[in-house]
Design a protein around this nucleic acid. Structure first.
Ligand SMILES: [Mn+2]
Ligand SMILES: [Mn+2]
Ligand SMILES: [Zn+2]
Ligand SMILES: [Zn+2]
Lengths: 152, 152
DNA sequence: TTTATTATTGATAATCATTATCTACAACTA
DNA sequence: TAGTTGTAGATAATGATTATCAATAATAAA
């Protein structure tokens, strides 16, 4: 089910469709296409990027539909919103809290869920701060491997 | 210089004034008052909260002035912006990257810089992801000590 | 102290991502 | 196949933050 540090997009696709059906939602062609994109979440796209990607095949699709479907999936816990400065990006492949690495040079967003220290953090916070963590958004800014060479 | 897990506000106040002078900026009464607030940064206020706090003593102060001074101090590295969903909050007491704990019940923002695991994270990211970290924004959402009892 | 220079102010318009609104339409179901 | 109703697309509204600009005040020079 995990391929190349990524959950099988096909599995995620079906899971999202099921969740929508179970909540009484309808499956439209536009939703199908959007969910297919989100299931892979290549590059953690934002609403506009998803809109542009879908516009070719569906010229009549509306940006509002993107936002409404994203909100729906977020409510169902099937999409993670990465809240950046006036620009939300989305991960439908790993809809749970996990760290992200953002390159300040090429602006790409990488998954940082290989990092092992995260689990311990929650526990340390609960012990030292008496704070009960339910979710988190951890963002690290810097230079990705490729850009380190370009910039230096 | 560190009192009660907080940098001496007086020290921060003087440091910010020096930085503004050094960069050719002028010291106005409104800036003085705002910097005094930021140096303590009680509760990590946002622009509107700073505005409301200063309005009593300075009825003619403008929200634009708050934003412009915040941008100036941020450029000088003397204020940390905590970028939340369409609502930036500020820490002028600890202007460097550090974790924050946000209570989803009372909405208060706590400092989480007691946590020791952070230093190790950057190193782990550089090793495992080949990503060179320059700054971060780490936000943990959950229930503060007081609210855990109220909610349960 | 007086004057000249120019950064800063406050009022207000502009921006821009995201939401809300509303009617025609299409997805499900009996 | 028709009826019910959730959804789509167009567009207006929202709201935090920025940009604009003439009047003013902070600083330095005289
Ligand atoms: Mn991700
Ligand atoms: Mn802080
Ligand atoms: Zn890069
Ligand atoms: Zn609380």
């Amino acid at each position: 089910m995990i391929i190349n540090n990524k959950i099988d997009p096909e599995f995620r696709y079906k899971k999202m469709l099921t969740k929508i059906r179970e909540s009484g939602g309808r499956i439209t062609s536009h939703r199908l296409a959007l969910i297919r994109l989100l299931a892979a979440s290549e590059g953690h796209p934002n609403a506009t990027q998803l809109y542009e990607a879908l516009r070719r095949q569906f010229p009549t699709i509306s940006l509002a539909t993107i936002y409404k479907t994203l909100a729906l999936l977020k409510d169902e816990g099937e999409v993670l919103e990465i809240d950046l400065h006036n620009d939300s990006h989305y991960d439908g492949n790993k809809p749970y809290s996990h760290p992200h690495l953002i390159c300040t040079h090429c602006n790409r967003i990488f998954d940082g869920d290989i990092i092992s220290g995260i689990q311990n953090l929650n526990q340390e916070i609960e012990e030292k701060c008496n704070f009960q963590v339910s979710r988190h958004q951890l963002v690290f800014y810097g230079l990705c491997e490729e850009c380190q060479q370009k910039v230096s």
